[in-house]
């Protein structure tokens, strides 16, 4: 479970997140949406301690995030927007293995995790390929595999569908759904609710750094007017 309490984050004079308390239950599928600048990305970057709160607290599975960053970052996998900017290696296998290597796991365990992470995103047997030669959808899936190789309990994705064509988008959707079915809680940050309408069981709508609506899609639908969120 990921929980924030009265979270405040400021960039200089601008308050990006203004007193947000939200809980991500184990095994849930949560969509976080809102207009550009509503604080979505800033909020989720607190989930694994990439940012430090100016006020408030963040807990992962009951423990404060800052107490053990390795534990928090292992429990909460994160996939960034524009995955191309975030790869650390030139080939698929070397990139997916980066997280497990940092955890100091044995080589056999790392290899096994790379294999299973790649197979979870439908990229079996492609560990030796160069990342810069992959298509957009394949790139997105390798980025997800990189997070999965840490064997997280929770997976956070920032705009995972941006720039993907329809078939690629569907394939990513399917993978997220099956991960969620297998028990991983999934948080998807998006300004496009249509992409996650079928799979998310709860939507949090952010506006100017505060929660404007929180509930099942049907309940928040009415509140989306004027928030610059593309409804399903």
């Amino acid at each position: 479970m990921i929980r924030t309490e009265g979270l405040v984050h400021r960039y200089g004079d601008v308050t990006a997140v203004d007193g947000v308390s939200v809980t991500v239950d184990d095994g849930s599928f949560l969509a976080v949406c809102g207009a550009n600048g509503s604080g979505k990305t800033t909020l989720v970057r607190h989930f694994n301690g990439l940012l430090e709160p100016d006020e408030g607290e963040v807990f992962v599975d009951g423990d404060p995030v800052g107490a053990d960053l390795v534990a928090a970052r292992t429990a909460v996998g994160m996939v960034f927007q524009n995955p191309r900017d975030c790869f650390v290696a030139a080939t698929v296998g070397a990139d997916v293995g980066f997280g497990p290597e940092n955890l100091g796991l044995a080589r056999e365990e790392i290899d096994a995790r790379v294999e299973s992470a790649l197979s979870a995103v439908g990229m079996d047997g492609r560990r030796d390929e160069r990342i810069d030669r992959l298509s957009g959808g394949e790139t997105a899936r390798v980025a997800i595999a990189g997070a999965l190789a840490m064997e997280p309990d929770h997976l956070v994705l920032d705009e995972p569908f941006a720039g993907l064509d329809w078939p690629a988008r569907q394939r990513v959707q399917e993978r997220l759904e099956s991960l969620n079915d297998a028990g991983t809680s999934v948080v998807v940050v998006t300004h496009d609710l249509g992409a996650v309408a079928d799979v998310s069981d709860r939507v949090v709508v952010l506006s100017d750094g505060t929660i404007a609506a929180d509930g099942p899609l049907g309940a928040v639908r009415a509140g989306l007017e004027g928030l610059d969120v593309r409804p399903p």
């Binding site: 960053l69 390795v70 955890l103 100091g104 796991l105």
Partner: peptide
């Protein structure tokens, strides 16, 4: 396996 020392 030893605990990871994160790069700050």
């Amino acid at each position: 396996m030893s605990p990871s020392h994160l790069v700050d």
